[in-house]
Nucleic acid binder design. Sequence first.
DNA 1: ACTCTCCGTAAGCCATGGCTTACGGTAAGC
DNA 2: GCTTACCGTAAGCCATGGCTTACGGAGAGT
Lengths: 110, 110
Amino acid sequence: MANTARALDGLSALGDPTRRAIFERVAKKAAPVGDLARGLPVSRPAVSQHLRVLKEAGLVTEEAAGTRRIYRVDPRGIAAMREWLDAHWSAALDAFKDFADNQHDEENSL
Amino acid sequence: MANTARALDGLSALGDPTRRAIFERVAKKAAPVGDLARGLPVSRPAVSQHLRVLKEAGLVTEEAAGTRRIYRVDPRGIAAMREWLDAHWSAALDAFKDFADNQHDEENSL
DNA sequence: ACTCTCCGTAAGCCATGGCTTACGGTAAGC
DNA sequence: GCTTACCGTAAGCCATGGCTTACGGAGAGT
């Protein structure tokens, strides 16, 4: 599907712990950069850079409000990742089912 | 929940593109290290190192079969990540709902 | 026993990228 | 209009980690 690339970008983006922390805060409540930076152990420019990555990955959106930039999560980004996970989830279950069946056959053939 | 740490490890682990490629192949079909390395542009030791990270993240399991090590995906690892995503998914939807409501209120108050 | 295959680990190299400080630009308040 | 607050970008530093080659051990076949 077309969202595969976005899902991969999303996973790469959320691979960084600081970015996850920012993303979690934005998910709880939309907020400007300064507010986010105040509760984190990194500088404001660092948060700004992380938000850029998250935005390019399709996980958050940016909205200008005066001199502030309000960031909020983009549900489509999460949806793309869920789809990716579900695809491999079912593939994993199928593979596990084959494994279990083979185990059973071997036990019977002893 | 107790799975939060595992979910975070899983996201960190899948942040790397090579690791995602390995994980996708294992998800399709359980396989030994050599088979996985043959289809990838990196050396076998590199694959071995990635599998170690995936194993520590709870995303794959290891099974000794003679001189081979069969790797297969651990459904629990994917489940933990799904739970994490779903939690922030619903948080995102709630936040978005508040946003939409406020937008509506402002329009009414003009 | 010998060999051959399969694999994990160690050591080391080097690019990636996360962080900081410094700067400039824009909107709001007085 | 001047100052002040908020923010993105540039430049540069440095740790992290991904990759390779080299090595050693353990099981399978002859």
